[in-house]
Nucleic acid binder design. Structure first.
Length: 848
RNA sequence: GCCCUCGUGGUGAAAUUGGUAGACACAAAGGACUUAAAAUCCUUGCCAUUUAUGGAGUGCCAGUUCGAGUCUGGCCGAGGGCACCA
């Protein structure tokens, strides 16, 4: 027997699969389809362990579904536009396209080495004209439907590099490259009207039964629906301002009104342009962090205006108007009414500026003298100190009733607000999809005629210019449409646009006429299982959901509302971190273990500090290169290990020891295979283990099938080990060769989604590679004749009796009486009560 | 601050509807084989006296139940999300 040579075996089968194009998928209405999609990678250079985990999970599922008889589509592509290409190209004086395509070639080879069942005929790359020309047409279609518009918006502006920065490029308020202090600058930008679909996007979440709840909650919070009322407050003072509109979810607390606060960007701020103190205050506000957390904990500050606002329900009450740092311009009207007693933020503010705190809600168990003291009361109860609103139940009745009254008196109006903002898609970058728009000399917008699509991204662009390289490319920028001069839009699209519809493109990746073919998306869509990282829980997944709705808007051919029927978010791959004595990160390759202590490789005086296990990242150098690992241990062993240690939705700890164990296990399995191969030849009627083997195999079919369906992939690996342990124990006993062969074939199929090369090799070795399909559980075989009955006395387990199935209570009691435990526990005791659970246990309650 | 999730051996983790807690693996210790080592195989796993046996035991405290890792309430701890959201 030769040892298992993964290299020969894996190369052989990968080549055969590729030649026979076994993973090619076609529309076939005679079969039920299954569309399995993993989030496509950014072509950064080489694959990382996160990809290995993500694509292994998807591959196990695809192979399982194929064996079950589904018509499976399992495509792969490249999210190929984006800043890293532009940065790498600039640093190394390369063409971003070349850089990207080279990376794609490398990564494709690496993915192939994993033995993934991918239909490479459907491969797409978002940076190809063939892809982005359809995207430009979609853009124009959405523009025609009124779902695309242009408006001014703030950006992070780097004054030295003359460029717009993404949030992650701003470090401590400075540009990451230039170090210049980042400015807020207003630019005209393109927007997708995603907020038009706020309610639909929210409602759609209820239909997504196979999505993790966590993701749905995150999206729900992001969409942020709130029900309330808009109120116009009359104002008086030295400024020419007659009223200020506010949005509130708590109109019922209007009698607790004690100030009105507006954003520093509010319209009335134009009266303070010359006011130095106000401008200082505004600057101060911009210093406080903009995260929700920063402001919840941070200090609330205000700037008093010359205005007072009048309480519409109590016109004799006039309260001061402030600018305040906790009021946002882009939500509601950029103005709030303050009720300190029942809003913690307002409470903090009132304390600081010594404003009235009037209690108008009391908890249900408090009396009418209840008063808010140390913190705002935001819970339920009933209204007090509120004249004609008194005694209304808070919150539901009080809010609805107050809105009715406000509407009746024409002071306010019922209103639903969403926090979801429109999606700004303009990026002042070169390496992206050009926006098919142009401007005349007066700046009026026009669309590029559809016949002139695609607007090709120009080549040979100087990336070292300041600002957007496309802006400087005048021969590309200046165009003539119908004899008139125009300049092109030089912004490119956010790369999230590319990934918002790629799942549709896979259905028709070779259709050059349009982004998809109707009959093909009708067959394949929606994606049955989408798999990827939870970091895309909000933006990518919400944008994709929006894109489906936008394409379907005023388009009766569009039949499905949600792109991803099932979603699975896998955890990250982690590794210990290492630092040398100078506090520099070290990679696992740079260290060695002697005894219990890590040392720098080759320097046994240099101890290495071991840090916590964290998600693999280049900056911390705690990365393991999958290509190397695959080369050393083989794809099957890597697949086995990456699934084995933790549930796929949780983070997994990379362990070299675990990796080696998986590798060794396949070697052991191969030794067992050869024993089985010999045993199969023996015709034997004295078959002691036949029934056990049949039953065991059937149990495993049941377990593995259920675990696959539930994504318990780590348990499947445990099941595979159980299989080994079981067969290894019985293999030297007497077994009928025919029965062994039948069971073993089923077992090889069960493990094939995880270790496809190994399993195929074994099937081929035994010449049973024909008619391979997923085995079905025989329910009748799951029924055991003998059962371990748990005997409890006063709820404590005292013994286990192996007795016949379906035995009744009296018979079981008789067995117990014959048993020695009766002598020990039941002698001279009376049994008060017997709890008998059929085929499971019996619990005897006795007097102690 | 708000929202969500999760707490099980030295470690990663298993455990249909409440019904044998710790499957499976990693690590460790002891043993077998070996001149020796590696590899391989076996045993052990918390507390008590020795194989056997008994006890405690799923973050902590209560509750429901014949019976709770699982259900309910409170507390403690960890992780994740958050766009100042009125």
């Amino acid at each position: 027997m030769e040892r298992y040579n993964f290299k020969t075996v894996e190369d052989k089968w990968q080549e055969k699969w590729q030649k026979a194009r076994v993973f090619r998928s076609k529309v076939d209405h005679s079969k039920e389809k299954f569309y399995c999609l993993e989030m496509f990678p950014y072509p950064s250079g080489k694959i990382h362990m996160g990809h290995v985990r993500n694509y292994t999970i998807g591959d196990v599922l695809s192979r399982y579904k194929t064996l079950q008889g589904f018509n499976v589509m399992h495509p792969m592509g490249w999210d190929a536009f984006g800043m890293p290409a532009e940065n790498a190209a600039r640093e190394n004086n390369l063409d971003p396209k070349e850089w990207t395509n080279k990376n794609i070639a490398t990564m494709k080879e690496q993915l192939k080495k994993l033995g993934l069942s991918i239909d490479w005929d459907r491969e797409i790359s978002t940076c190809s004209e063939e892809y982005y020309k359809h995207q430009q047409l979609f853009f124009l279609e959405l523009y025609e439907k009124g779902l695309v518009y242009r408006k001014e918006n703030y950006v992070n502006w780097d004054p030295i590099d003359q460029t717009v920065l993404a949030n992650e490029q701003v470090i401590d308020g400075k540009g990451w490259r230039s170090g210049a202090i980042v400015e807020r600058k207003k630019l005209n930008q393109w927007f997708f009207n995603i907020s038009k679909f706020s309610q639909e996007l929210l409602d759609g979440l209820n239909e997504l039964k196979q999505w993790p709840n966590k993701v749905k909650v995150m999206q729900k919070n992001w969409i942020g629906k709130s029900f309330g009322c808009e109120i116009a407050f009359k104002t008086e003072g030295s400024l020419p301002v007659k009223e200020i509109k506010c949005f509130t979810t708590r109109p019922d607390t209007l009698f607790g009104f004690s100030f009105l606060a507006v954003s520093v960007d509010h319209e009335i701020s134009k009266h303070y342009l010359e006011d130095k103190k106000f401008q200082e205050f505004k600057k101060e506000c911009s210093k406080t962090g903009t995260t929700e957390e920063a402001i919840a904990i941070g200090e609330k500050i205000g700037f008093k205006t010359d205005l007072v606002a009048i309480n519409p329900l109590n016109p004799s009450q006039k309260v001061p108007v402030f600018f305040a740092n906790f009021v946002l311009m882009d939500y509601g009207f950029g103005a709030v009414f303050g009720c300190p007693a029942h809003d913690q933020r307002d409470f903090d503010f009132a304390k600081k500026y010594d404003l009235d705190i009037k209690t108008v809600v009391k908890p249900n168990d408090a009396n009418d003298n209840f008063e808010v003291k140390d913190e705002a009361y935001t819970g339920p109860g009933s209204l007090i100190n509120s004249e004609f609103l008194n005694n209304l139940k808070v919150p539901d009745e009080s809010i609805l009733k107050t809105i009715d009254i406000l509407e009746e008196r024409k002071i306010g109006q019922k209103k639903i607000n969403f926090r979801l903002k429109d999606w700004g898609v303009s990026r002042q970058r070169y390496w992206g999809c050009p926006i098919p728009m142009a401007y005349d000399k007066d700046g009026n917008v026009t669309t590029i005629p559809k016949k002139d699509l695609p607007v090709k991204l120009p080549e040979n662009v100087d990336l070292n210019t300041k600002g957007n390289p496309l802006d400087a490319k005048t021969d590309w920028k200046n165009i003539i449409i119908d004899g008139k001069k125009f300049t092109r839009e030089t912004d490119t699209l956010d790369t999230f646009v590319c990934s918002s519809w790629y799942y549709l493109r896979f259905c028709s990746s070779n259709n050059s006429e349009y982004g998809y073919k109707q009959e093909e998306i009708d067959y394949w869509m929606p994606v049955d299982q989408y798999i990827g990282g939870v970091e895309h829980a909000i933006l990518h997944l919400l944008y994709s959901r929006f894109f489906m709705k936008a394409l379907g808007y005023k388009n009766e051919n569009f039949k499905f509302k949600e792109p991803f029927d099932g979603l699975f978010t896998q955890g990250m791959v982690c590794h210990e971190t290492y630092k040398d004595k100078n506090n520099n990160w070290l990679s696992p390759d740079e260290i060695e273990l002697i005894g219990n202590q890590f040392y720098k490789k080759g320097d046994h005086n240099h101890k290495v500090q071991v840090g916590p296990s964290e998600s693999m990242s280049k900056s911390k150098k705690n990365v393991i290169d999958p290509a190397k690992i695959i080369k050393n241990y083989g794809a099957d062993a890597v697949r086995l290990f990456i699934l084995s240690d933790s549930p796929p939705e949780k983070d997994v700890q990379w362990s070299e020891q675990g990796m080696v164990a998986s590798y060794k296990f396949l070697q052991k399995l191969w030794i067992l295979h050869n024993k089985i191969k010999e045993k199969i030849k023996i015709e034997n009627d004295q078959n002691l283990e036949n029934e056990n083997l049949k039953k065991f195999t059937n149990q495993m079919i049941n377990k593995i099938t259920n675990n696959l369906e539930a994504f318990n992939y780590n348990v499947i690996i445990a099941n595979i080990y159980e299989i080994y342990n079981f067969i290894n124990k019985i293999i030297d006993k007497e077994i009928n060769g025919k029965i062994l062969k039948q069971s073993y074939k089923k077992i090889l199929i069960l493990i094939s989604p995880v270790v496809p090369h190994y399993s195929t090799e074994c099937l081929s070795d035994l010449k049973i590679l024909e008619n391979v399909e997923w085995p079905k559980t025989d329910k009748s075989l799951l029924v055991e004749d003998k059962i371990d009955y748990v005997i409890q006395i006063n709820g404590k387990k005292r013994a286990i009796l192996n007795e016949n199935r379906d035995i009744d209570q009296d018979s079981l009691m008789n067995k117990i009486k014959l048993n020695k435990l009766s002598e020990k526990y039941l002698k001279d005791k009376s049994i008060k009560k017997i709890i008998f659970v059929k085929n499971r246990l019996i619990n005897l309650l006795i007097n102690e």
